[in-house]
């Protein structure tokens, strides 16, 4: 087995009495698409927040490219090459689409014109129409928000990108489009992806490997079809969302 790109080791994160992430461990390998699933409140978003430095885990370590990055602040983590999108969109309402993506690109250059060019390339690549580039963040649709969120994360030139429910709220044909874009993005930018998603058709189709979380722990791991037939997984999902 090769060295994993990212290793989550025994991470614990509590909120008062709630243990959101409870001794969670997993590995992510270079260039793969890993699906991270689990019922509501399983701790997926909290785990993302621990990896990206939004929260500092109480226990455990996070190793990225053989470097311990546990507890580093978000602006340092992204410099190392881990970007993320948000489950609940966090738009820059008074910036245009192009400006928002330029903000991301400015991480790798102090030159605004150069960053703007990078932003344009990425917008073009993920398929946001030119006519929408000068729209303000307050004027665009949900799918555009998701794509802009993705674009500004990509503009930071990450090695690993964490997608938190990018497909939520999209119509089936929009999801197919998005899946294609993600595959294309992975090829072009040599990316590794962790995809958190409730829409099973989307995540099962896209991911090469699946990790299942429940009550803050990993309860299963494997290829999509293995996981789908795992009795523990079925049990975890019973009474919540059907597989």
């Amino acid at each position: 087995m090769p060295e994993p790109l990212l290793r989550v080791e025994d991470v614990v994160k509590r909120f008062g009495g709630i243990i959101a992430v409870n001794h969670m461990s997993m590995e992510v390998y270079e260039n793969e698409i890993l699906g991270l699933i689990g019922p509501n409140g399983a701790g997926k978003t909290t785990l993302f927040n621990c990896i990206t430095g939004v929260y500092k885990p109480e226990e455990g370590r996070i190793i990225f490219q053989n470097e311990d990055i546990t507890g580093l602040p978000p602006h340092v983590i992204i410099q190392k090459g881990i970007a993320r999108t948000w489950q609940k969109v966090r738009p820059f309402k008074k910036l245009t689409v192009l400006e928002a993506v330029t903000v991301g690109a400015l991480l790798r250059t102090p030159d605004v014109d150069e960053a703007r060019e990078t932003a344009k390339e990425i917008l073009e690549f993920i398929g946001i129409e030119k006519s929408r580039w000068n729209r303000l963040g307050s004027e665009i649709t949900l799918i555009e928000h998701k794509l802009v969120d993705l674009a500004r994360a990509l503009a930071t030139r990450p090695k690993l990108i964490l997608l938190d429910e990018v497909a939520a709220g999209l119509r089936p044909h929009e999801m197919d489009e998005l899946a294609k874009v993600l595959l294309k993005v992975r090829e072009e930018y040599k990316l590794t992806l962790i995809v958190v998603e409730h829409v099973m058709r989307f995540v099962m189709g896209l991911s090469e490997r699946i990790v299942v979380m429940h009550e803050g722990k990993k309860i299963a791991e494997g290829r999509p079809e293995e996981v789908a037939n795992n009795p523990r997984v079925v049990e975890a999902y019973l009474g919540t969302k059907p597989l």
Partner: peptide
């Protein structure tokens, strides 16, 4: 028009999103 201006605007709009983009 500078990097500083873009970064300040991002901070004004959403600090956490700004920080996650490396600011």
């Amino acid at each position: 028009d500078s990097k500083l201006g873009y970064y300040l605007a991002a901070i004004r709009e959403d600090e956490l999103a700004a920080e996650a983009l490396g600011i």
